[in-house]
Nucleic acid binder design. Structure first.
Lengths: 205, 205, 205, 205
DNA sequence: CATGAATGAGCCTTCATTCAT
DNA sequence: CATGAATGAAGGCTCATTCAT
């Protein structure tokens, strides 16, 4: 019994952090959930912070893994479909682990200046990817001219807020519908020919 | 000297909370900034939490004040211009008080479950207003059919994220350009005739 | 009431450290003796270590103050008498504050590598002073030739051990007799003319 | 391989205690050095304290073994040479095992009231031996009259401090020179005829 | 109004020791 | 003999809040 202890703590941590927030979460909460003594926690993590960071890092990885670069130059690829697939995978990651969604989108915010920086650089990465894609596509005449940086912030924010609100409400909804609603909102503002398969947001870096 | 003490604490609080976050802000930081003794703080606020809430409530008020209902039925009003004016006032409120922007968009997030609820209900209010407007406008044939709730989340998130990123970077930019970029991104997805003066987002409640 | 709190803690600390040693001394012991709450201690000292260091530093200062440089060149000074006076003042410092004697000679030893270094450099200072004095006096033909460094260690050790043993036993004895016994033991080994007033150990630096 | 485990722990303990002091030494340090698991330690020692005590006791034994009683009544024995030989053996014991020297002269001091008592009684034994010898010799007219107890403290302290300082500095020096310097310092203060072979410090108990 | 010394509940963390395998 | 995961008592330290002056 006792699946890998570390894994148990990660699961307990996700639940507790999501429920109480970072500062109100107690090491006692974790060990109580796992059913071990206090000291055991420190066998697997340096401190509360380490558990939190491991949790967030793991989820960030899952998210970046969900995003696959899209090859604009490959004529065999439908970039719009690829983009939609990317979005879908991200949305699914969130709805599959609502505790981690809550943690990334809320708990992790404002923990302290250090962690804020970490979060920022994660979103920076994603934003940079989108900026690159938009610029390439714009040069290729697939995307309407516009401020790529601000557009990227908008797109990220649009996704974050929607996921946060839905996850928080425990709303169950088909990820496809969500993605399509979001795409419907911005496609015409971004793409020259929104219905055209030759347009995309996320291109190869 | 010594403008209203309470006001001094509000200003000190804004600076400290923005810099250190809620949990790392110390009552000592406030009184040190104001230049009074520790006990004086409690003459003006019940506790640390009260200062934070006063600060956030004041800023929320400023934001809701910035949004003026738009009378769709009044033919003398250009609803698109009115919408743009609303957005502009909101953006200006954020860039004029970057500390409060940081606090509302980051510090206040994840403070604890209680405060999370308060934030949520604030955004709920705004979201509800947008939902109402979209529905009315959709019924009037001004807005393309779509999921009003999710669209509202998207619009709020788009604004929040962009403002957060820009304020955080200390980026100075013309609010008009920002608003226009955002409108350009979503107008075609929302309005039946985006260039048409008869379309709007925020209508009278 | 309540003489200077810091002073109270210093006195409590001396008693507790002397009785229980450094590691077994609890912050609770200090505050219990002073009759205040736990937190009060941290108003006056950063931590347990800081109290200990303040205590030791203060006593070290008292000791170095007790040693007055002796002017070998001044014919109006009886260097042997001056030396005896120095020793007497040192001995008196120890017997007057037996707790501090215990602390410097035992408690402070082996606390940790850091503190060991601090102690070492204190004795180094004293040793260096003696080495200088012996060398000068030897050059002046007042002292028998010999290894000044090792002699200094010997003299310091002789004093330390004797004081430690006596203080520990709570032995009450006339400091004069103690000093004379020690001088009687080493004078003939050091001075060319032990009974002669022109010889001394501690000279001006 | 693996010489006697217990012996391995003793060696590891000497190194670790000498380097880190008693309280900062961790059971983990011992087992890491020996290359076994944590629990193994407790197969050979009851606890950390037991290892320390075994170590110190072993070294104390080695020291008392180094001191051979001197028969004042035997005319065939040169007591001064015998005394010098005793001192030399003690000095050699220290310089041969510098870790144990550090431990006895520093680490073991101030560990706790219990251990202090143990140390004290060890030095008491030695002091008593010296007191006896001095008294006998004084009665025999070989030694100048003086306070035997204080003289003993002085002699022990002189030896301890010098050895500590030299061992700590890693100073390599001929034990003979050290012993001769020390003897030169005190012989004239102790012996009636310092150059005379009929005088000695350590006599038969 | 203002002060600032005092409070004390509360949480994190360490590490010697145990014991089932 | 050996292992090493688990234990849990123990203690340091913080800091929001109070209240006598």
């Amino acid at each position: 019994m006792a699946r890998d202890r570390r894994q148990q703590f990660l699961e307990a941590g996700a639940a507790v952090f999501a429920e109480k927030g970072y500062h109100d979460a107690r090491v006692d909460d974790f060990v109580a959930r796992v059913g071990v003594a206090r000291g055991t926690f420190y066998l697997y993590f340096d401190d509360k912070r380490a558990l939190f960071e491991a949790l967030v890092a793991r989820f960030m990885l899952r998210l970046t893994d969900a995003i696959e670069p899209i090859e604009l130059s490959d004529p065999g690829v439908d970039p719009i479909a690829a983009l939609r697939a990317n979005l879908l995978r991200v949305v699914v990651a969130f709805v599959e682990t609502p505790a981690m969604a809550k943690i990334l989108l809320s708990t992790a915010v404002g923990v302290d200046p250090d962690f804020d920086r970490r979060l920022l650089s994660f979103y920076e990465e994603i934003t940079a990817l989108i900026v690159r894609s938009l610029s390439q596509a714009e040069a290729a005449g697939l995307v309407r001219p516009g401020h790529a940086q601000i557009r990227s912030f908008c797109l990220v924010g649009l996704l974050k807020e929607t996921l946060y609100q839905l996850v928080l409400r425990g709303a169950t909804f088909p990820p496809e519908a969500l993605v399509d609603t979001m795409l419907d909102l911005v496609s015409r503002g971004i793409f020259v020919r929104p219905g055209d398969a030759s347009a995309t947001i996320v291109a190869a870096p």
